[in-house]
Amino acid sequence: MKKLVLRNISKEFLGKLVLNNVNLEIDSPRIVLIKGPNGSGKTTLIRIIAGLIQPSNGKIEIYVDGKKVLDRRRIVGYVSHYPLIYDELSVKENIDFFAGLNGLKNTMGYEFIKSIISSLGLIKYLDSMTGNLSYEWKKRVDIARALIHNPEIILLDEPFTGLDEVGRQSLIQLFNELLHRDKIIILTSPIGDIDKDLEILSRFLDKKELREGSLV
């Protein structure tokens, strides 16, 4: 059982209020969609949850089996809207590198990693240089990078952007698998894509919208 709690999260950039008193409490397994137009603070919120930005006010608490987690990095996986991987390395080298930094050796020996690579359709590209791949495949490698350490909370910033129908289906399949593993998944969507994303997610989700607090 995992729990993510956001208490009165606010964020100011140069005197401009981006997030105002956001409260959220999520238990696993659950997918949450954060929606809003560009500039509404979706990415800021998701980065605060990831620990990349400190909030101006408020705090975040994460519990795994009732125990408070102190080092968020070990249990959070973050996928940005642009891939955070090395073009100069092959797909396998990228996966091995990030797995190594998470203390995992012999990457392909882990069933969880093999299943992620397989779900994302990356097996045939393992030896390809990442820089030679299209944006969509880079994004898939980046998703694998974020999931490599089997995180309990998965944050995805506009995950469906740039993916074709096959890519979307792969991701949905992956979300399904992750939900069965008792994960919390939080994703953002720009206002124009919401209907499409909701339609995709509603196939297997219990939708939960951000009602408490507000995105300014």
Binding site: L52, D71, R73, V76, Y78, Y82, L84, F98, G103, A146
Partner: peptide
């Protein structure tokens, strides 16, 4: 952008 992915590792 890879600084962020490094900072996210423990």
């Amino acid at each position: 952008g890879t600084l962020y992915s490094l900072l996210l590792t423990p």
